[in-house]
Design a protein around this nucleic acid. Structure first.
Lengths: 175, 175
DNA sequence: CTCTCTATGTAGCACTTGCTACATGATTGT
DNA sequence: ACAATCATGTAGCAAGTGCTACATAGAGAG
């Protein structure tokens, strides 16, 4: 019966649409169901509970984000000082902003002590770290680690600053 | 009748306690009222609506934070490279973390388009920028601006990384 | 001592939340 | 053709949300 599995993944994609458009905060069962063209009743038929629903939806979101980032790979590794400005441009891309909004929601909930979002956040963060490492050129492994960390730190700082309307400050810091 | 005004500020302080301890997410009227030793009914007697309640509570929180930061002033201005590690220590101080947690909630809501939190966030962000500028030593005004921006970017990045359990990555990036 | 105004309690409303009980049409394997 | 499983609708529940209506105890002013 992979009919059911198909339906689950189809629904998950539409849930991802909704979350990207409206954020986790607007993602209670009834709005999610409507976005998926079904009912809250059916969401809880295909999935165990709300936690699983959000989990699969966020997986779909993460998958799309990975696709975007793979497409944004530089043709060859760059040193930190050259890579950072390039990523900053990408960061201010409107196509990425919905993901960043969700990212802040995840971080906020993780900070509030929610173990689910803490785990999700750490996974995504480490994924980004690895991605950054692959884009960087540095003298040795240690420098690579440090530069990847610096990259992540700057990106996250930029996201937070942009969220409060200080995108200009972030730009000034990076260039 | 400044009796009423006294009561308002007294309540605001206890609301600040509660928000610092439990976050905005746990700050619906009834829990807030209980923390203030009163009832939701009375909160809405002393304040116009929930928006005003949160506003005064956040003002109290911001006041305390300003006090902490004033106490954390370096004895003399330092260049960026020396100031940043000092601030990083402060950032990982447990006394500051409740404020950072709220800060992430504010940023998240601002990112979600809430104009109230966008305004609050920008104000606090600019306040921090000015504070940082006062702590920094640099060649000229332009360098001062840029270094203050870099400082803010790094701090915010560190906060976000710490929230998802990557405080070690932040530390590696800063030192 | 009355009278007015402040402070407070009790109840409730309309709405949203995640989730469930019950029924019933639709499919499907035998 | 029939029994069993799947899919789905309708209705509801208990808890929580911001907020309000109504009543009333108490204090202070004349």
């Amino acid at each position: 019966m992979n009919k059911q599995e198909d339906r689950r993944t189809a629904i998950a994609e539409r849930l991802a649409d909704h979350i990207l458009q409206h954020g986790l905060i607007a993602s209670s069962l009834r709005p999610l169901a409507q976005a998926a063209g079904t009912s809250d009743r059916m969401l809880l038929y295909y999935f165990e509970d709300k936690a699983e629903i959000i989990a699969v939806a966020l997986q779909a979101v993460a998958g799309r984000m990975a696709g975007l980032m793979a497409a944004a790979v530089a043709s060859e590794p760059l040193p930190y000082d050259q890579l950072l400005p390039k990523l900053a441009v990408l960061l201010s891309d409107e196509g990425f902003w919905p993901y960043m909004r969700i990212w802040l929601e995840i971080a906020s909930r993780a900070a509030g002590g929610d173990p689910f979002y803490a785990k999700v956040g750490e996974e995504i963060g480490r994924g980004f770290l690895a991605w950054g490492r692959a884009q960087l050129k540095a003298e040795d492994d240690e420098a690579l680690d440090r530069d990847a960390a610096r990259l992540l730190l700057a990106i996250e700082g930029g996201v937070l600053l942009k969220s409060i309307g200080l995108g200009d400050v972030a730009a000034k810091a990076i260039n």
